[in-house]
Design a protein around this nucleic acid. Structure first.
Lengths: 221, 221
DNA sequence: TCGCCTCTCCCCCGTGCGGGGGAGACGGAT
DNA sequence: ATCCGTCTCCCCCGCACGGGGGAGAGGCGA
């Protein structure tokens, strides 16, 4: 389907032209690497990838319209063998790492990585079906993501105040203590608690806390 | 401290001589890679690494005496800049992946990986301080490991009955409901609950449930 | 302007919960 | 034979909790 023997076909997705140019220069300097497409938005990336069917996509996370994560999701979600997607970002400590893995990215590259790192990463990812951090880590990321689901359906229905009350409930505080922390009267907290119970569909604060844990609204530790 | 410019110094740790030889042949074929030591056990690996101070260690997981994970732990636990450790194993779906990351391994390599994958992985790991799957994923693995702690201190102090009551509490049941499920009287459940509260050092059932979640006594999902 | 939502707070009322006691039965350890 | 831990169940008591109402102030979009 895709070139494997010698030539590695790459698509660059980044909203900054300069970044794309820099990447292109670096990659084109290698005999076995060819940049076959560029995209400035997530939507563009999806269509370009569908059109040119590259081996590797270097995908920036922050892009207009559709971010890199969702673009990756769409690219890898389509049937058939997709490209390897390497997600590019500035910081390694943000949640993009987990998200990238969750949607099936093959690698993760920091913008501060050098040219050599870049080309080797591309080569590595293009070839490897069983290398550095593969399926097992995706499973890990999947589990991680599963433990923090997008947000429980009722979370969006909770108002700011109600959510705050629920979070404080989940620390084991009584209504009076919550009132103290929020600087409101106990009666106010009572009514918020009542709203939380109603919206979460449970009967008491204990069940509300359980629901908060089970839904990922809050997490252990 | 260690050679960075051109030569990458590698130590091989595997209990099978043939594997070590094969790895050595592959790596020595590259001008920039040098095998500076071998070890057949985890303990050997630790001492060899301390002696020769390599850039990269290829560490088999299954080894006599001390396995690769614990050896890695000891190697990276010592002060100063340690080598990059690439953990080598046969299957990618076992818990070694998480363990390897937890103890600070820089990479993970499958035995079925080809020669090219191997040398590129070594080069990549030797250079990269900010590449493919770094600190963020270690944090992920750490979090993963942390989420399944050995067992809370008070768990051993709870009797069978008390633990059962706590588990049922954590499903949101009232004392009366718990009594029904356990086939005992409500008063009995009350006293068990009282014991649980006393032993866990909390004041009400909500806090007990929180403690159960936080300590890993029970887990979301 | 008129609704609608959110946040705030009030009332009464019933009860599940937790504290503080005690007590009988069983079994295992000493 | 004695002690101790566990499981079982009882009493009384106070209170935080939750249900069911209502109500006023502010914001915000139709």
């Amino acid at each position: 389907m895709t070139a494997t023997g010698t030539e590695i076909r790459v698509v660059l997705a980044d909203d900054e032209r300069m970044v794309r140019t820099a990447l292109r220069v670096i990659l084109e300097a290698e005999a076995d690497l060819t940049v076959v497409g560029e995209a400035a938005t997530g939507a563009e990336a999806v269509s370009v990838v569908r059109a040119v069917r590259p081996d590797v996509v270097l995908m920036d996370v922050r892009m207009p319209e559709i971010d890199g994560i969702r673009a990756t999701e769409q690219i890898l979600g389509s049937p058939g063998p997709g490209p390897r997607v390497v997600v590019v970002t500035t910081f390694e400590n943000d949640s993009y790492v987990y998200e990238a893995l969750r949607v099936g990215a093959s690698g993760f590259l920091l913008k501060r990585a050098g040219a050599e790192d870049l080309v080797q990463a591309v080569r590595l990812v293009a070839r490897s079906d069983s290398l550095l951090f593969p399926a097992a880590l995706r499973g890990l990321a999947a589990e991680y993501a599963r433990s923090r689901p997008p947000a429980p359906r009722w979370a969006s229905r909770l108002t700011e105040r109600e959510a705050a009350v629920l979070r404080l409930m989940a620390t084991g505080l009584t209504n009076a203590e919550i009132a103290e922390r929020l600087g409101v009267g106990p009666a106010t907290v009572k009514s918020h608690v009542a709203s939380v119970l109603a919206k979460t569909g449970v009967r008491d604060r204990t069940q509300a806390v359980i629901a908060a844990y089970e839904s990922g609204f809050i997490s252990p530790r």
